[in-house]
Simulated assay, not measured.
Amino acid sequence: MIHMKSLRHGLAGLSASVIACATLGVGVSTTAAASGWPAGQPINIVVPFSPGGFTDLIARRFAHDLGAALNANVVVQNKPGASGQIGTAFVSREKPDGYTLLVTATQHVIYPGLQPNLPYDPRKDFSNIAILAYAPNVLLVPAKSPVSNAKEYTAHANEKGGLAFGSSSVGGSAHMSGELYKMVSGANLQHVPYKGASNAMTDLIGSQIPSAFLDATSAAAFIRSGEVKALAVTSKERLPSLPDVPTVAESGYPSYESQAWIGLFGPADLPGEIVARLSQVAIQSSNTDANVKWLTENNATPSRLTPDQVSQFVLAELDKWKEVIAKAKVTVQ
């Protein structure tokens, strides 16, 4: 999870719970959908995590623009618990009328591989609407490490007979990035879970652990200060905020791609015109100059995926992480 203290400008001007309609436009018409939605009724966006994290901040920025575009009140409700399962299950049981939406993160596609008996099915119980942001991870080593790129890292790990990599948790996006790297590169790596990215970073800086996969927001300041060395970002393209750090794909492993993301969903069978309207607002909101600047400052990037593309993406992510989890024999307590 990406932590509040590393984010900038996060909640400036936003209410803690209700994002009223605003004069700030996102370049779209305020004509209501054919169904009459929204008909003077608040739209509730459920975030299945605690306030202040990256998912919550993304949700509140989107809610602000959605309220402006639809001339509606948009309420952000935090329903944390069970790694996002409680809030996600709540939305899956709501009516598909456009008044209850879900903004969640990569756990949506990872946890089905870790816990088959979830109280919902990500493949069937949701309408896939938009990806609001991508947030890649970074492969890091201590500043004095002898390796300087991903290929050298793989060779070093195998020469040593195995190398540890830290991450912020078991089953999180950063951990999965490392497990996928093992599969794609053939590197002999062993995962060491930490309770949060800051603890892993402290040990990495002190060379108490020889490598780590951590989210870019937690890592960026330490990369720029030279306290750690970034070998590669896990996204398909380089991060604008870290332009000198190559991707894993361009470092010799072209099939590799792994990154956290924040997505917008609704209950299954949400009317098509509502899905289309929400997608339109989400794409335009995420790609305004102000939001692109904010995302870049927070080591993230926007998306322009259509609902059909989001559905294809989610299904591919579910399949990918299920395979990685099975092959790596990842379990959670």
Rank of each mutant, 00 (worst) to 15 (best):
H3M: 04
M4G: 04
G13V: 13
A16G: 14
V18R: 14
I19Y: 10
G25A: 15
G27M: 07
T30M: 05
P38D: 00
A39P: 02
G40S: 06
I43T: 05
P48M: 04
P48W: 08
S50E: 14
P51K: 08
G53H: 09
T55N: 15
D56I: 06
A59F: 05
R61E: 09
H64D: 03
H64M: 13
H64N: 11
D65G: 10
D65Q: 13
D65L: 09
G67F: 11
G67S: 12
L70Q: 10
V74K: 08
V76E: 04
N78S: 10
N78D: 10
K79P: 00
S83W: 09
G84K: 03
G84T: 02
Q85M: 10
I86F: 08
I86H: 07
A89R: 04
F90T: 05
K95G: 03
K95H: 10
P96A: 07
D97G: 10
G98V: 00
T100A: 07
L102N: 10
I110V: 15
Y111K: 14
P112A: 04
P116D: 01
N117W: 05
N117P: 00
P119Q: 04
Y120H: 10
P122D: 06
D125M: 03
N128T: 14
N128P: 06
I129W: 03
A130L: 01
I131T: 11
A133C: 08
A133L: 06
A135I: 12
P136I: 05
V138C: 08
L139P: 09
L139Y: 12
S145E: 12
P146A: 03
V147R: 07
K151E: 14
K151C: 02
E152T: 01
E152Y: 00
A155V: 12
H156V: 01
H156F: 15
E159A: 13
L163T: 08
L163N: 01
L163R: 13
G166P: 07
S167V: 11
S169C: 07
G172C: 00
G172P: 02
S173W: 00
H175P: 04
K182S: 12
K182Y: 03
M183R: 13
S185P: 02
A187I: 09
N188L: 10
L189R: 13
Q190N: 13
H191T: 07
M201Q: 11
G206T: 04
G206P: 01
I209R: 14
L214V: 14
D215M: 06
A219P: 08
I223S: 00
S225C: 06
S235T: 08
K236I: 10
L239E: 09
L239Q: 07
L242A: 13
P243T: 06
E250S: 15
Y253E: 00
Q259I: 00
Q259N: 06
W261F: 15
L264F: 02
G266W: 01
P271A: 06
E273Q: 13
V275G: 01
S279A: 15
Q284A: 15
S286I: 04
S286R: 05
D289W: 11
D289Y: 12
A290G: 10
N291Y: 07
W294C: 09
W294E: 11
T296Y: 01
N299R: 01
P302L: 05
R304K: 09
L305Y: 05
L305G: 00
L305F: 02
T306H: 02
S311V: 01
V314P: 02
A316K: 13
V324L: 12
I325D: 05
A328Y: 01
V332Y: 06
V332Q: 09
